[in-house]
Amino acid sequence: MTTRFILIQPSHAGNVGAAARAMKVMGFDDLVLVKPRWDDVLERDETIERASGAVDVLQKARAVETLEEALEGITHLCATVMTARDFGPPTRTPREHLEPLAPRGESVAFLFGSERYGMRNEDVYRCHVALQIPTDPDYGSLNLAAAIQVVAYEWRQCLGGFGAARPPATPAADAQAVAGLLAHWEQALVEIGFLDPKAPKKLMPRLNQLFNRAQPTPEEIHILRGVAKAMGEAAKKAKP
């Protein structure tokens, strides 16, 4: 299964570098340029600078003369368009089209037109779908790298994604620790005059439920008990 990003007649070196960066952060590295403006675009300083570390994608990329060469080995073609084409393939959002496509294991190419005039009708017509990124109706202009980033993200999510990086979870304190915290707080609340031990009403059960919902960690239990201790000491100092 191949995922290829094809840039048709790219005219700005910086956009090629930014495209490589957008692909790399989503785990893709198959980039093909069709008749780029610059023969040496993959080695130009601006390209490398805008790639921001995705030099391996540029080194693997290739430039070809025709779209037919770029499509070798590809079985499913996705054009990217701002407006639907009459007599062209169906126009769908990336997510709508790509979710059912992912399990089929096809070799997919995403085609992006020139920055100056987009994709030609004849290139769109040969594709299986025209992908249209939902944007504000009053301003739908995405630059090339931004469009690639959105499509690459949507396709990666359909392929299973990477998952968000999260810090290791800290286990919640056990019930005994929470009970000790409640007892300490009850004592402190009495000492500062907030809780009347003769008429406690539902304060402590409600605090118990609050702490159960919060699921404090052992470190947080330690902090809260320090607060209770400080309240008790302040109450003692305040007494005549």
Rank of each mutant, 00 (worst) to 15 (best):
I48S: 10
A214Y: 00
G226L: 04
Q149H: 03
W38R: 10
G226N: 06
P200F: 00
R156P: 02
L159A: 09
L142M: 13
G160W: 04
P94C: 07
K35P: 00
R156L: 02
C78P: 07
T217D: 03
H97I: 00
E233K: 14
F28H: 11
Q59S: 13
A235F: 12
D40W: 02
H128L: 00
I221C: 08
W155C: 06
Q187S: 11
M82N: 10
F87M: 09
L142Q: 05
P134Y: 05
T2L: 13
R156E: 02
W38E: 12
A102I: 03
V64Q: 09
P197R: 11
F110C: 11
G118K: 12
A102W: 04
V32H: 11
K24Y: 01
L207C: 07
R4A: 11
P240C: 02
R225C: 05
G14K: 11
R116K: 13
R44T: 10
R126A: 11
A19N: 05
E46L: 14
F87G: 13
C127V: 08
R126K: 11
H184E: 15
F211Q: 05
N212T: 13
M1T: 13
A179C: 00
R62L: 01
A235C: 13
G180Y: 02
T3G: 04
R166I: 05
P137I: 02
V227K: 05
R50C: 09
V129P: 01
